[in-house]
């Protein structure tokens, strides 16, 4: 048994033991226990669905999460997708934002706590601040994206008489640069605020755990030689040479 195996076994056992304290109580307890004790294979070696969590249901597979829960107009999503790919393009290292599923990641984030700015202080009065005072707009993040995408479309029509996602790469970059420099007027916020959010969201989608919908097949991590979730490096931390380790995501807890 490797250190890693031992750790997973130990922590699962410890977790299940501790979880009995909350079983039937908090929702989080029930879900996690279900996930951990739900077995994956039946006696014939066929994939079995966990009744507690629905894990392994065909409908729950990765591909079926590639659908929109925030954007309503398909064109908006295409514009977003084209912009993300310019920020993080496909190259000889590996996939770009679209290949990693970043546009879907952003769509899903915009529908939830992130997009609705649920953990941000959103009480007025609102005043424009200095640069050192940070974000001061009454817009929630998903509203900033709405405004940003609306103006990406408008600017594209105005400058090139074409849809943003139909422009060539250099033209798209030219428009994105104008946004980055805060030169495009937006309603309720500034174009550089949108650009900065978008850039961060692209990197977050490229490199966060695949559970969030981006970093498809951990390809983002593979490009960087980042091994994701590993239980322990105790036996490797003193190594003199660089270690390439096969990455692992949080899904390992549910297999």
């Amino acid at each position: 048994m490797t250190d890693k195996d031992q750790k997973v076994t130990m922590t699962r056992r410890r977790f299940i033991r501790n979880s009995s304290l909350v079983a039937g109580g908090a929702a989080i307890g029930g879900g996690l226990i279900g996930a951990l004790i739900g077995t994956n294979l039946d006696n014939d070696g066929k994939v079995k669905t966990s009744h507690e969590t629905g894990h392994n249901q065909q409908e729950n597979s990765e591909a079926s999460t590639r659908a929109l829960i925030y954007f309503t107009d398909r064109e908006d999503f295409q514009v977003l997708s084209a912009a993300t790919e310019r920020i993080f393009p496909e190259d000889e290292n590996g996939p770009g934002a679209i290949g990693l599923g970043v546009p879907y990641y952003i769509d899903h984030q915009l529908a939830g706590n992130y997009g609705n700015s649920t953990r941000e202080y959103m009480q007025g009065p609102f005043f424009p601040g200095t640069e050192t005072q940070g974000y001061q707009s009454p817009l929630k993040r998903n509203q900033v994206f709405n405004e940003g995408i609306r103006m990406l479309k408008e600017t594209s029509q105005k400058n090139y008489n074409k849809k943003f996602d139909e422009l060539d790469g250099e033209q798209q970059d030219e428009i994105l640069s104008q946004f980055e420099q805060g030169k495009v007027p937006l309603r309720g916020t500034d174009s550089n605020v949108f650009f900065s959010l978008l850039r961060s969201a692209v990197l977050e989608g490229a490199y966060s755990d695949p559970v969030y919908g981006g970093n498809a097949n951990m390809e983002g991590w593979k490009m960087k030689n980042f091994p994701g979730h590993q239980a322990s490096y105790l036996s490797q931390i003193e190594a003199k040479e660089f270690k390439k380790i096969k990455p692992q995501s949080l899904h390992v807890f549910h297999k």
Binding site: T11, R12, F15, N113, Y114, R119, E204, Y207, S208, D209, V211, Y212, G228, H229, Q230, L250, F253
Partner: peptide
């Protein structure tokens, strides 16, 4: 147990 999640803990605090 499942804390190795940079986005949840290090980015979204």
């Amino acid at each position: 147990l499942m804390v190795h999640d940079e986005y949840r803990y290090a980015i979204r605090y």
